[in-house]
């Protein structure tokens, strides 16, 4: 049953993916100038200086700029579906290869932020709900308000100022792969993780707190108390599972926010993930890579949302058999 549900949900993501691909494809059409030149990374000056006739002709054929737009789109989509996102004129290697090389760094950062955020958010959100109007609740509200009102990139700057400039405890830019030097990896990933993790936590705390307060008023909680269960069991067994079911659904959306926010954070810390790649490519006018990265991240986000849905179905007995 779950498999059928998963497949059905997967089919339902197809229209979304289709529309996203149209939007991303259209972005390139918006760039002013000769599209062949744009995709070759050309930005002014004499054409003959930088691009040979052969290269231009090859690109013209690949893009099929003289064909109707829908046909161009279909061709682009067909290649993208086979994992071919074009070639970066700057690096002369397939965009997919560049993305895959940068992907681990982004995944580590996202995972670290989600783990940190969740570790902070769950206990704080639950405690705030259970002990309303106590110092824990005020602390949780403070964290939420802080996360909502402070722009992530400013928090990043302040952390750089504090830990990098004044205290000198942590490196403020760059990256070391975990397999090379795990300690250095942790040192480099700490500051960006704090920024993204706190932002993530703020949303989750708010959601958990509100949901938990509502769950505490449910009849099943009264039943659990009437059984003589300890408050610990009532909260962490009975309410917790119900509240987590609801929370999983928002996690997908929050991960999407996280990916959006990571662009600027990766750039501040010169953290070489795919978001930083996107920015570098924009400044290098490497639009093949820009297009590739955007569609890649969008797909990843849709997939995350899909996973969150499946996870919800897996955990929630009520939806599984529908």
């Amino acid at each position: 049953m779950l498999i059928r549900y998963s497949l059905r949900r997967l089919l339902e993501t197809i229209p979304t993916l289709f529309i996203i691909s149209v939007i991303v494809f259209s972005l390139v059409l918006l760039i002013p100038g000769d599209r062949v030149l744009v995709m070759l990374g050309y930005s002014g000056g004499d054409i003959a200086d930088v691009i040979s006739k052969e290269v231009y002709a090859a690109m013209e054929i690949r893009l099929g700029v003289n064909d109707p737009i829908p046909l161009q789109y279909a061709r682009w989509l067909g290649r993208a579906l086979q994992g071919d996102l074009g070639t970066s004129p700057l690096h002369a290697i397939p965009v997919m290869d560049i993305i895959l090389a940068r992907l681990p760094a982004t995944i580590y950062l996202a995972l670290a932020s989600i783990i940190l955020g969740t570790l902070v958010a769950i206990p704080l959100g639950v405690a705030a709900a259970v002990k309303q109007n106590t110092w824990v609740d005020h602390l949780a509200n403070g964290v939420v308000l802080f996360g909502l009102v402070t722009p992530g990139f400013w928090v990043a700057l302040m952390l750089v100022l504090l830990f990098g400039v004044y205290l000198g405890w942590l490196p403020t830019f760059g990256y070391t792969a975990p397999q090379d030097d795990f300690v250095e990896f942790l040192r480099h990933i700490t500051l960006p993780t704090i920024v993204l993790g706190l932002d993530f936590a703020a949303n989750v705390i708010r959601f958990i707190r509100t949901d938990f307060i509502e769950q505490m008023r449910e009849d099943y909680v009264r039943t659990a108390r009437a059984k003589g269960l300890s408050e610990r069991l009532v909260i962490w067994k009975h309410i917790f599972k119900n509240s987590m079911l609801a929370t999983v659904t928002v996690l997908g959306f929050d991960i999407s926010r996280l990916m959006g926010g990571s662009t600027i954070i990766e750039s501040i810390f010169a953290y070489p993930g795919i978001s930083f790649l996107l920015l570098q490519s924009i400044f290098n006018r490497d639009f093949a890579t820009v297009q590739g990265v955007v569609i890649f991240i969008a797909l990843m986000v849709v997939f995350m949302n899909y996973l969150a849905d499946i996870l919800y179905a897996l955990l929630n007995p009520r939806i599984r058999y529908e």
Partner: peptide, 18 residues
């Protein structure tokens, strides 16, 4: 739950759905 027990009016919501 051991010496005094109680059952409630709303059977649809009194059990934990999870």
């Amino acid at each position: 739950g051991q010496r005094i027990s109680m059952i409630f009016q709303e059977p649809m919501t009194s059990l934990n759905p999870a």
